[in-house]
Amino acid sequence: MTMFDDRERAHEAQFAREEEMAFRITARRNRLLGQWAAVQMGLTPEETDSYAKAVVQADFEEAGDEDVVRKLFGDLTAAGVDTDDGTVRRALAEKAIEARRQLLQSE
């Protein structure tokens, strides 16, 4: 029975590691997205840092990426940046790849 308990604990530990990594990738992606959008809006470095944190926080509003896309698109449009939903979603995909790469390199 101990062997089965050990296997179960190993699977649970692996699942926890994968979930933590997914959370870290999403948080880093959102920070990178915030920085990207801040450049588009012409924000100062201080404003960029604050805005990137706000984008990370926006992801906690609902499950999935729609809350982040909605925030970015709304803020970019309000700032007079000529953009569309597709541009924001492409940036989201690109920053997800970049975030994963950065985290894997840092380990």
Rank of each mutant, 00 (worst) to 15 (best):
M3K: 12
A93L: 13
F4Q: 12
D49G: 13
F15N: 06
G64A: 06
V88M: 04
A37H: 06
G80M: 00
A58Y: 05
A16S: 10
R9T: 03
K95N: 11
T77N: 04
L72S: 04
M1P: 03
V88W: 01
M21F: 15
V81S: 04
M41K: 06
Y51A: 05
V56T: 07
D84P: 02
Q57A: 15
R28Y: 01
N30Y: 06
L32A: 06
A54H: 09
M3H: 10
T77W: 02
Q105A: 02
F15H: 12
L32M: 13
E47W: 09
F60S: 14
R7S: 08
R89F: 03
L104K: 01
L43K: 14
V81I: 07
E107T: 02
R24F: 05
A52W: 04
V69N: 01
K95Y: 07
R24I: 02
R100D: 09
Q40T: 07
V56W: 04
L103D: 00
A27Y: 05
L43G: 11
A16E: 13
A91R: 12
E66D: 10
F60G: 11
Q35E: 15
F23P: 01
G74K: 01
T26M: 05
D6H: 12
L104N: 00
E107W: 03
V68M: 02
A99L: 01
E94W: 05
R17A: 15
R17V: 13
R31L: 12
V81T: 07
D75I: 03
V55G: 07
A63I: 08
A38N: 07
D59P: 03
E19Y: 15
A58K: 05
D49S: 11
I97V: 14
D5R: 14
D67H: 10
D75R: 03
F4P: 01
D85W: 08
R100G: 02
G74L: 00
D59K: 09
M3C: 06
M41T: 11
R100A: 08
F23I: 14
R90Q: 12
R29M: 03
N30R: 05
R89C: 08
P45S: 13
D59I: 07
R17N: 15
Q40K: 13
I25F: 00
W36A: 08
S50H: 15
T87D: 04
A91F: 14
F4Y: 12
F23Y: 15
A96L: 09
W36F: 08
A99G: 00
M41L: 07
D85M: 14
E94A: 13
A22W: 08
E12Y: 15
T44I: 11
T48C: 14
F15R: 12
R29W: 03
A54N: 04
G86W: 08
F23D: 13
M3E: 13
R7F: 13
D75V: 04
K53P: 09
M21V: 05
A27E: 10
Q105G: 01
H11G: 04
E61R: 05
D84E: 05
F4H: 09
E8C: 09
D67E: 11
V69C: 00
L104A: 01
E47G: 15
G64H: 09
